[in-house]
């Protein structure tokens, strides 16, 4: 110890300070989540009688069972899954095709069209909401999950942009060689670009999965039949009729959050990469 130079001592002191600060701040960030988890396990009386207590007096797992039945959680979960899978497939298929068109093919009007694509990103959804609703109703899509899934098959500017950037980084020589071998454009897209772009496609899929899971305003607008509600919307309905049952609300919220946390841990890399990509264009 005594052999340490002043600088090293200083360094060590800062590093202790830094770790302490990081621990304190991350504890603050995690606190709401921890409180949610703890509240979901508390007996109802404790939440009303002693609202500021931290730990459950006794652990009540049955809160979860009650929430499952009251919501009806599994039914809504099934709808959420259908929505998520449909939207992810739609997004990945359409956006990768369109991005290929923008990134790897030369055609007249491409630049202008790309500018239009970017412009649509800046348009607030409010402007198109009402006519869109009218149009979808006319098409008989009202109260159908398809009203929410189908638009994803028509591409999304943001993902198209992301994938285009990625596709452009793949060497052009690969395509040229394939063309000489007689592969069609679709063949090049399918056999060469898609396999090489798996990480980017996974990122897009993950993003869309989160978006669909969270989506509240489309079901609010398009769905009226309880049989078709996804969780995000079903949960809101639950809040208004069980607003005084904090233990059930928290149990339901935990169950609604967990799949996303799981997803994050499984696919942390593609998330982080995707997010940083959006910033560094």
């Amino acid at each position: 110890m005594s052999s340490m130079t002043g600088g090293e001592m200083n360094n060590q002191r800062t590093s202790v300070w830094r770790i302490t600060l990081l621990i304190v701040v991350s504890a603050l960030f995690m606190l709401p989540l921890v409180l949610m988890l703890l509240a979901s396990l508390k007996p109802a009386e404790q939440l009303t009688g002693d609202p500021y207590s931290l730990l459950p007096e006794r652990v009540v797992w049955s809160n979860y069972q009650q929430a499952l039945e009251a919501i009806p959680y599994l039914k809504y979960l099934a709808n959420s899954i259908v929505l998520c899978v449909g939207s992810v497939v739609g997004t990945v298929v359409s956006c990768s095709l369109v991005a290929y068109g923008f990134a790897r093919l030369r055609w007249r009007g491409r630049k202008a069209m790309f500018a239009v694509l970017i412009a649509t990103m800046l348009l607030p959804w409010h402007v198109t909401m009402i006519p869109r609703f009218v149009l979808f109703s006319e098409l008989g899509l009202y109260n159908q999950l398809a009203a929410i899934i189908l638009p994803t098959f028509l591409g999304d500017a943001f993902y198209i942009f992301m994938l285009r950037q990625f596709f452009m980084s793949i060497p052009e020589e690969l395509s040229e060689a394939a063309r000489l071998d007689g592969l069609s454009e679709f063949g090049i897209y399918w056999r060469i670009i898609v396999p090489l772009s798996k990480p980017a496609l996974v990122t897009v899929a993950m993003f869309q999965l989160v978006v669909s899971w969270n989506d509240f305003s489309s079901p609010l607008l398009y769905l009226s039949d309880q049989e078709k509600f996804p969780l995000a919307y079903g949960l809101e309905q639950f809040v208004s009729s069980y607003s005084d049952q904090t233990h059930l609300l928290m149990a339901a919220s935990v169950m609604f959050t967990l799949p996303m946390v799981f997803l994050f841990f499984v696919a942390q890399k593609s998330f982080t990469r995707g997010i940083t990509m959006t910033g560094s264009k």
Binding site: Y142, Y222, S224, D225, Q237
Partner: peptide, 21 residues
């Protein structure tokens, strides 16, 4: 009977009427 708890019941009804269902 379909219970529709939640807020803005009228709005949902209006959407259903204009939505054609």
């Amino acid at each position: 009977a379909v219970s529709m708890p939640g807020n803005n019941f009228d709005m949902k009804l209006f959407l259903a009427i204009t939505g054609g269902d």
